[in-house]
Nucleic acid binder design. Sequence first.
DNA 1: CGGCGCCTTGAAAAGAATCAAGTCTCGTGG
DNA 2: CCACGAGACTTGATTCTTTTCAAGGCGCCG
Lengths: 242, 242
Amino acid sequence: MKTDCHNCPLRKLDLFDPMSKDEVHFMSKFKTGEFVAQPGTEILAEGASSSQLYTALDGMGLRFKTLENGSRQVVGFILPGDFIGLQSGVMGEMQHSVEATTRMTMCVFNRSELWDLFKYQPRRAFDLTHVAATEEYLLGEALAAVGQMDGYAKISWVLNRFFRRLTALGLNENDQVPLPYRQQDIADAMGLSLVHTNKTLAKLREDGVATWANDTLTVHRPKMLAENAFERGTRLRTRPLI
Amino acid sequence: MKTDCHNCPLRKLDLFDPMSKDEVHFMSKFKTGEFVAQPGTEILAEGASSSQLYTALDGMGLRFKTLENGSRQVVGFILPGDFIGLQSGVMGEMQHSVEATTRMTMCVFNRSELWDLFKYQPRRAFDLTHVAATEEYLLGEALAAVGQMDGYAKISWVLNRFFRRLTALGLNENDQVPLPYRQQDIADAMGLSLVHTNKTLAKLREDGVATWANDTLTVHRPKMLAENAFERGTRLRTRPLI
DNA sequence: CGGCGCCTTGAAAAGAATCAAGTCTCGTGG
DNA sequence: CCACGAGACTTGATTCTTTTCAAGGCGCCG
């Protein structure tokens, strides 16, 4: 195991709630190892029951559902610190698939030990519920964007969200953040066609708002981007790290 | 308090997981009273931190977010058995508003006692997390429908969902279920305009699939409705009742 | 009886999907 | 070293779904 929980690089970020010594100790016992997924690998499959749960430590991925009619809905983007497998852990099986976009490193936990967490670490159990509620919140925001905004606002919304999340993770350098996804991924997330997504990105570029090229997103006018996305003045919301 | 947890009418349904004697006892202490909301009343407001949490006992309501541009996204429909206020309980404030559509009766819990649940009832805490994960699952399904389906499929999807949920609650009589919402609510849930929603409902009626009138949904061809909605052969999924 | 809320319907306008090429980059193999 | 091909990105033209606009109808309550 390369990364010991005691010097977890993620926990140091302001984005995540601090953890007590005891909690860190519990987590380091709870963590059974590390797992590296290569780009394009499926980490969890929709409908599958996994005996492992993960926390993304490094790299990026995405969550998606495949419909009967063949289309794909991206239900979330996985960035470092995100917990993977909650549904499998508490409901028995995943309701969406998870795939690695870049090379990903993940902390591995045994599902069978999840019960210990509830039994002996109520504080951590509460945090896990917090994580679940946060997921629900994020999905609600996404639903509102997909359901109510037009194309220009949708793309602004998703880029703004990436910009803010990645900035909180300390990955912002001169208003540039890494964004290794494909346009098709963003299209499938926002319920737009690839062509329309592409044209909308071009418009945002022409408008001098943001440029996304070479796996890098550059935001020239952060305020304008946030306005386009109807962002409310939301302060940084800290959350627990599992 | 009118309804004692010991003879809770909801718990008897197959839809909900059984509860141990001890758990029922804990819940009846956890429940501090009952609350009746009149139609149109706001039960919880987005951004507000409530000191009370609820479980819908009777009646129907809806969850929604209001965007800066004035539009409204319905993020969920509340039916008997649904837990209300999870986000407020664990994250400190609600991320969407909750409103009563019909007259609603709710079990009331004190947020301050939620911690006891985690500390002394790990099994119930697990169930609460299960509820949170279920919410996430339902939102994911809705996101896929709103993002990937066309109007006809979206309306089929939401009607089919109501039909199945209400049937599981024992409210199906001769393929008729109560549906006291307005067309605007369904439109705001599926990201369609009121006009288009209305025309699509007319089409489903003409096609002999389903008729929705007088707060009652009649499904003439359940199989066809399910097919239109791209429903996968999902068996009834039981869930915990809080 | 009047007004308000909700449902219904037709016509016009707009936004987004689809169709159809064409370009660029990068890794592979001749 | 260069031709080749796959995958991703661009762009224009056309089609069609969905929205917007506009108006009328129905039922219920004061």
